[in-house]
Every structure is written in structure tokens, then in C-alpha cells.
Simulated scan of single mutants.
Amino acid sequence: MSEEPEAADLANRPPQAVGVRAPWAAVPAGLRAAVEERLGAPVVAADTQSGGFSPGVAARLLLADGRRAFVKAVSEAQNPESPGIHRSEARNAAGLPAAVPAPRLLACFDRDGWVVLLFEDVEGRAPVLPWRPAELSRVLAAVGDLAALLTPSPVDVPPVAEKQAEAFRGWRTIAADHAAGRDDLAGLDPWAAQHLGELAELEAGWAAGAAGDTLAHSDLRADNLLVTADGRVVVVDWPWACRAARWYDLLLMLPSVRMQGGPPPQRLFDTHEVAAGADPGAVTAVLAAFTGFLLGHARRPAPPGLPTLRPFQAAQGRAALDWLRTRTGG
């Protein structure tokens, strides 16, 4: 068989959230021993999981007694911000109620510049991409279940305005850099460049629009979801959790769904239960801020240890911008 169809399929494949993971063997021997001590058995096999962007270790562990666990470990040498992100994840995971479909935190510790998290292992797989309608429907239903379960927030986390105060300034940052001669807008979507001032103004109202008392995951994407054989949807990776509007998680997820072969976001958002009664102006302002975050960060150099992040943000940002143009009549 010719190789051309395979190459074409690869070229048309939806963008994947796949980083450059360190293997289990990269963890210093003393830390590996500490993991085994906490788990109560030696590790006999480690299967690296490629999903997600952290440069650290993310692996399913098989123990000598047949049990399994999941380990995440990272050091400042791999990325200076990643240890703090892992610590936030540990705090949030420890506070999640048992009813939340998320892996239970077994242990966490800091040592020698590393942060190590141990979770229960979940037997599941990431959603199939491009998205399949039935599986997407199951995930969207799970988003509604989460919002119901997590309102009011059962975990003490910051409000979204505090959590994203610096991140959601993308359009204003681009506009300021352009005015100062630091950004010539090369590569920016022509419609966005033409309406930069309006987008910056629209973005400025995002915090009031996103306010709420639902515990939001804030990073729902296919790579942070597991589908189990019995049909459950399990949500992993909670470092960005905050208190926000019931529809906040849905809004942030839908551009990635579109980017990875799903339907237009507007239709999914308008028909979802968590969006019922949402103020249209608030939704548009938050979408503008999220779009500016994605496209603004995509213009920056790649962070240390995360070479695949910027192209993924750019693709997700283009999908978000299409939706924003629809909402603003652009």
C-alpha cells in the first residue's frame, strides 16, 4: 500500500496536546525509592503517558504486588513554574469531594527540587479524536454533572478574577506592545488586527462576567479527560481550579473541541444546560479574554521544556476567534 494516504491522514489529524515527557527513570533514585515506600511496594514497570504539556514525569506504575498507581513528578530544572503548578494540583485534588469523578490523591512530597504527586490509577483512555458524536455527548453531559456537583464550590480556591488576572490581558497586551512599537502584528489574524482596540475594550469586562461560585476545572480538554469502559468520564489535572460562573468550563473547553473535529461552539454552548440564562455580554467578554490569552501567548517564545505548547495554543485560539467573530457579528 502507498504511504501517501497515511501521510495525508497525519497532516489532517487534529492538533494533539502532546508534550515532551521525562521517563520514570529520570526521577532520581532516592525519590523513586521514596515513591515505593509511600506506595508500599517496589515499582516493576512504568508506562509514560504522553498527553499534556508538562515536561515532567507522568506515568502509570505497576507495583510488585499487582497494584497500580499514577505518578507525576517535575523539577525546577525542567521548567521553573511546573513545581508550583504541581503543588496547586495537590492542594486542589486533596480537597475534591469523593463524589467528583477524579483520581484520588494518595500522597505528595517535595524533595531535592522535585515535586512528586501520587494518584490512584484510572483504567481509561482519552476521548477519540476527531471527536465522535456519542462520546462528545457523554463528555458534555459530564460537564453539566460537574457544574451541579460543584456549585457552590466545595473547595477553597481563588475566584477566577484573581486566578486569571494576569493571563486574561492578551488583547490589551498586544495593543500596548503595538502602540509602543514592540509588536508589528505580523501573523495576527487580519480581522483581529483591524479590531484590536475593540477586542481590548471587550476583554476588559471579562472578570465581572466570569464571576460565580462554581468550582471550575479551568482546563477541560480531551487530554484532561479519561473515558472508562463502563462509560464514566473522569477529569484529571486540577491545578487551575477556581470559582467561576457555571458555564465557564464549558466555554473554555469548546474551542478545543472545535479544533479537534467537533461541531461549532455556538451551537453546543447555546443548547447546554449550564449556559441557560447566561448573560450574552458576559459570555462574549469572557470568550474575548480567553481568545486573547490563547493568541497572545501563541506569539511568545516557547516556555522551557514545553516546545509543543505554542502551536497548540495558536490552533485553539483560531477556533476561539472564529467563535468570537460569530458572537460579535464580525
Rank of each mutant, 00 (worst) to 15 (best):
A175W: 04
P190Y: 13
A200F: 07
T173N: 07
D183I: 10
K163M: 04
P190V: 11
L188Q: 12
D184L: 09
R169L: 07
G181Q: 08
T173L: 05
L199C: 13
Q194E: 15
G181M: 12
D184N: 14
L196H: 05
I174H: 06
P152C: 02
R182G: 15
A176W: 07
H178T: 15
P152L: 01
L196T: 10
D213K: 01
T151Q: 00
E203G: 12
G205V: 09
W191Q: 14
G209C: 08
A180Q: 11
L185E: 11
T173W: 07
E203C: 12
Q194G: 14
A167Q: 06
A176M: 10
G187T: 09
A180C: 11
G209F: 04
D183C: 08
G209H: 05
H195P: 08
W171H: 03
G209T: 04
A208I: 04
A204N: 12
D156W: 03
D183N: 11
I174F: 08
P154G: 03
D213A: 04
T173Q: 06
Q194I: 10
T173F: 05
G205Q: 07
W171Q: 03
L202F: 08
W206Y: 06
E198H: 14
E162C: 00
A193R: 12
L196Y: 06
D189N: 09
G170P: 04
K163D: 01
I174P: 06
T151N: 02
L199Y: 13
L185S: 12
P158C: 01
P154K: 03
P158Y: 00
V155Y: 05
A179D: 10
L188M: 14
E203I: 12
S153L: 00
R172A: 14
G212L: 00
E201S: 15
K163N: 04
G212T: 01
D189P: 07
A210M: 04
Q194C: 15
D183Y: 06
K163I: 02
G187Q: 10
P159V: 01
G181S: 10
L202W: 07
Q164L: 08
G170A: 06
T173H: 08
R169W: 04
V160C: 02
Q164P: 02
A210P: 03
A211V: 02
G205L: 10
Q194V: 15
A204M: 14
A210W: 02
G187S: 12
D189T: 05
A208T: 11
H195S: 13
G209A: 06
D184Q: 13
A208Y: 05
A175T: 03
Q194T: 15
A175N: 04
P159A: 00
G205K: 05
A165L: 04
P159T: 01
D177L: 12
V157D: 02
I174Y: 09
V160R: 00
D183G: 08
G187L: 08
A204R: 11
A179Y: 10
E166M: 04
S153M: 01
D156C: 01
A179S: 09
P190S: 09
H178C: 14
A211W: 03
D184I: 09
D156Y: 03
R172G: 13
A165F: 05
E162N: 02
R172T: 09
D156A: 07
